[in-house]
Simulated scan of single mutants.
Amino acid sequence: MQAILATLGYVLSPDRRSVLMIRRDARPDDIHHGYYNGLGGKLEPGEDIVTGLRREIHEEAGLDCTEIDLAGTISWPGFGRGGENWFGFLFRVTAWTGTPYTANPEGSLHWVDVAEVLSGNLPMWESDRHFLPLVFAASPQVFHGVMPFSSGKATSWSYTL
């Protein structure tokens, strides 16, 4: 399977009660428009996955990651706008330096209580609600999941620890 490699990082506040999220509200043609999401994006040629995450967090939020933990991986067959397959590496950013931006070309940045993210009340991809409890677990374990998409919706979810 050919896939677009990507990072998805969840920048935690020092007390780990809040997470820096982007509200994708800058471009109406964005398939994520109106949704809250972690920070990240596509890997560039020649980058390893951690370098890609650090670059994306710096570009999107103005922060430099000093401690990161791998939360897990997810294969998203059919996720892309044209049905492309995506493969994502999800991270918790537990320490960082800098002052976060309030916005970037993709949208506005917000500190959101982790409890609010997990509550189901925040506008986000419905499918994110399946894996976010694993990312923010009190005693997290690295997980590896697969979430096939069809017509813009997840059709199933499974994972192993």
Rank of each mutant, 00 (worst) to 15 (best):
S158Y: 07
A26W: 05
S119N: 08
V146S: 11
L39W: 06
G34T: 03
E116H: 13
G41D: 10
E44W: 15
Y101F: 15
A154L: 04
T97H: 13
G82T: 09
G62C: 13
V117P: 08
G38P: 10
S13Q: 07
L63T: 01
C65A: 15
T73H: 15
I4P: 01
D113G: 06
E106P: 00
G88I: 03
Y35F: 14
A61K: 00
E126K: 14
Y35R: 14
Y36L: 00
L161M: 07
I49S: 12
T102W: 10
V135I: 14
P77G: 04
T99V: 12
V135W: 14
L43S: 08
V50Q: 14
Y36A: 00
V142T: 14
F91I: 06
I68A: 13
D25M: 01
V117K: 05
T102G: 10
G46K: 05
D64P: 00
S119K: 09
T155D: 06
T51L: 10
D15W: 11
T99R: 12
S108D: 05
M21W: 04
L20N: 04
G46N: 11
R17C: 01
E126Q: 11
T102N: 01
P105C: 02
G72Q: 09
K42C: 13
E67M: 03
D69N: 05
P14M: 07
G88D: 15
S108N: 07
S139C: 12
P148G: 12
G80H: 05
T97W: 06
I49T: 08
T99A: 06
D64S: 06
G120F: 15
A138R: 13
N85R: 15
H144P: 01
W157H: 12
R27K: 11
A115F: 11
W125C: 02
W111I: 01
A154M: 04
G46M: 10
E59R: 05
P140L: 13
T97D: 15
M1T: 06
I4S: 07
H144Q: 14
F89V: 01
E47L: 09
P28A: 12
V112A: 00
R24M: 07
W76V: 01
T97M: 11
T66Q: 06
L132D: 10
V114I: 15
I4D: 09
V114Y: 13
R55S: 03
G80P: 02
A26V: 02
W76Q: 03
D128Q: 02
W125D: 08
L134E: 11
S75P: 02
S127A: 15
P123K: 09
S127V: 02
E60T: 00
W76R: 04
V146W: 08
E59D: 10
L134M: 15
H110K: 03
Q2K: 10
F149T: 00
A6H: 03
G9W: 08
I68D: 15
H58F: 13
S127I: 01
M124W: 03
T97L: 09
F131A: 03
T7F: 10
L63S: 04
C65F: 07
F79I: 02
A6C: 12
H110Q: 04
A103H: 05
A26I: 00
R23D: 02
G88Y: 07
L39G: 00
G34H: 05
G72H: 11
M1F: 10
T7W: 09
E67D: 08
R129G: 03
F91S: 05
E126W: 12
S75A: 15
